[in-house]
Design a protein around this nucleic acid. Sequence first.
DNA 1: TATAATAGTTAGGTTAGTCTAACAAAATTA
DNA 2: TAATTTTGTTAGACTAACCTAACTATTATA
Lengths: 236, 236
Amino acid sequence: MLSFTEENYLKALLQITMENEEKSAAGTNELAAALNVKPATATDMLKKLKDKELVDYQKYGKITLTTPGRKHAVEIIRKHRLWETFLYKKLGFTWDEVHEVAEQLEHIQSQKLVDKLDQLLDFPEFDPHGDIIPNAKGEIKVSFKKTLADVDAGKSCKMVAVKDNSVNFLQYVVKVGLGINNDIKVISKESYDSLLSIEVNGIVNSVSQKFAQNILVVCSFCEVGKACSKTKCEIK
Amino acid sequence: MLSFTEENYLKALLQITMENEEKSAAGTNELAAALNVKPATATDMLKKLKDKELVDYQKYGKITLTTPGRKHAVEIIRKHRLWETFLYKKLGFTWDEVHEVAEQLEHIQSQKLVDKLDQLLDFPEFDPHGDIIPNAKGEIKVSFKKTLADVDAGKSCKMVAVKDNSVNFLQYVVKVGLGINNDIKVISKESYDSLLSIEVNGIVNSVSQKFAQNILVVCSFCEVGKACSKTKCEIK
DNA sequence: TATAATAGTTAGGTTAGTCTAACAAAATTA
DNA sequence: TAATTTTGTTAGACTAACCTAACTATTATA
């Protein structure tokens, strides 16, 4: 049985290596930063996780999850996202409130609980932030690679998820009038600082590049959760 | 913010002092036994809880909860019992499965979660074991004092709760054909070892005194959760 | 009431997870 | 490629929660 802390390290490792396609390994500093601990602390834990054969790790080398390590991590993410969905759908939490509580709930040990929760929610595919929920077999579909920042002026897209789950960011998203499944039209894009002018439900707003990089989109022709179809795709 | 461990000590203290009316204080060994730790460990923790003004404690003296300590403890029990009810009513857990998982869930910190859960369950008064759920104000009604062992031969009663929440005991209760709200008739009682012969739904079974002491009952004239009315009461 | 039994405490040690400070390796860049 | 910057490791220390062994206080009993 793993401790909460060990679980958090595995989860952070998976999240780092899932962030983008190219990167398949993590570094000590990066890991430490993700967990809000000092690099020295991460080094200690990495040795421990290596002994337990949950990570592949050598001194000064890159860090990757082993197959069992990855399986654990996926399970934690599955639980996290199921709980978020539960809080949102069944208990009326707002999408900026769910993350913090799910951080606690993801560590509850009970296979039956996870299975029943999944069933109660009717086997959801996405959490309130648009992230894919790994299924009971631990299969996790490929995530979206395009962000609002990649969309050219004049083109339209549909928001499907967010990259940043912080309360601050999520509340700002709502303030700008955005939400999952909204259609967004990029009116213009400043060449100097990539400031975007976007239109959502007829309302025009300006958003920074930093903001746009945290909004995941597909082109409006594409299904939520599916890769863009190459022929008609409006993005990139 | 209290640690899981601190919360468990407070909960155990409340449970010990709630067990029966007379006893309003706990001892170190008793507390240690309840938590499956050594008495030395309990002593250490008691000093810490005293510093935090959650318990009244002096070397070699009896242990009681302070008002804030008791408030904390009641809140944990409230959460435990709400989660048990959730698992039972909403997720189809059996009554012997809920305790273990609720032991974990009771430590989740989120006032909103507790409130919403309470609402989802329609503000339940009792958990699946018949125990009273303290309300949002932390009010906890007096528990039942009569057990099946107190009922005389020839008299009838109604089961309202169990004292022992272990899987073993609960599965045995089911095997004997018993459950919350069942009417039980005591056919006979051995004077030598207090072995009881009981009838439930027309089926007769023998149960030991130890067993009977863990079944909480009211007389059949009495409402569940209310004290027996003196005039008609069949018990004692 | 003296003694034995029980209950409770203290001292010193362990492990998990964290830290800081000093150092070493690797990567970048001039 | 040599110097500098970045990244990662080691050593030593701390706290929470636990332990054992030895001791002390309280309670029960002969």
